[in-house]
Nucleic acid binder design. Structure first.
Lengths: 151, 151
DNA sequence: TATTGTTATACTCTATAACTATA
DNA sequence: TATAGTTATAGAGTATAACAATA
């Protein structure tokens, strides 16, 4: 054993955080976002942008307010996301027939193509996050998260 | 049944998000932060500030770099948190004997008193988050989150 | 030269309020 | 008056780089 004591190897007592859902939710979510950004970044996608594309594909002609609520983001923030996606030619906003206030959203062909690649990247992320969890464990985790999120 | 069709009750297809760990991690963490801020706010605490107090109490004379790593925040951001906590008389920073670069952290009496109230509030939050989960389910959730966070 | 902490700054995600235009 | 969307702005939380003081 060494008697040198530079870098005293300090291993603090982490007990106060060990059983805190709040702490581990924060860390797990950070890993999730980091992984998503790493895998989606090369496609010029973010978690938010991918969510928009996913839900528009599943809900053609969805309205912005409905989409924002489904994604659990504010309409004002969705506006910014959509403006960029439209400028990049990935989605189209069309006035609703008979109600010129409302916008109906659709993917373009380019949007559909990019979504395909984004969804594949996202599937990799999900695999990476759940690595080491058996299907039952993963399902239980999802159920618990949904319960906490009141979803 | 009514034939009126204002507010068309649109219920979009949420299937693409339903089984995504990334999505539900984000929502659960948001609920966690919201709840923490709601319960800690009246004490002028935040999740980050409470974490600092908790770990200093468990580790008297801990160094900033060690504390930052334990909390998984950057030293530069910890500096800001600590400056405020010290200005409010909740902690003290003392130069390490024999190494005037390093700071050793301690709670003041006021800090200990506030921590007591903060910890109680935090315990309520944990109860609220885990409400409806049996102890085994909560333990499994914690283990899964820790696994994802690689902690 | 390396370590400890600090400062300044920037970026992302989120939230609120005030506004336009339609209805 | 109420609704759909937009704009501007602000606040957390997080990250990086350059720096001062000390070792």
């Amino acid at each position: 054993m060494s008697l040198t004591r530079r870098a005293p190897a300090e291993q603090p007592d982490l007990a106060p955080l060990e059983d805190k859902l709040g702490f581990w939710l924060r860390l797990a979510q950070q890993v999730s976002f980091d992984t998503l950004h790493r895998m989606l970044g090369p496609l010029n996608l973010t978690p938010g942008r991918l969510g928009v594309l996913l839900l528009i594909e599943a809900n053609p002609d969805i309205r912005q307010a409905v989409l924002a609520e489904a994604l659990r983001i504010k309409p004002s923030n969705l506006t910014v996301l959509l403006a960029a996606l439209e400028a990049e030619g990935l989605i189209r906003r069309a006035e609703e027939a008979g109600n010129r206030r409302a916008n109906r959203l659709r993917l373009t062909t380019a949007g559909r193509a990019l979504l395909k690649r984004g969804a594949a990247a996202e599937a990799e992320v999900e695999k990476e996050l759940a690595e080491g969890l058996d299907p039952a464990g993963r399902a239980a985790l999802l159920a618990a998260l949904r319960h906490i999120a009141r979803g």
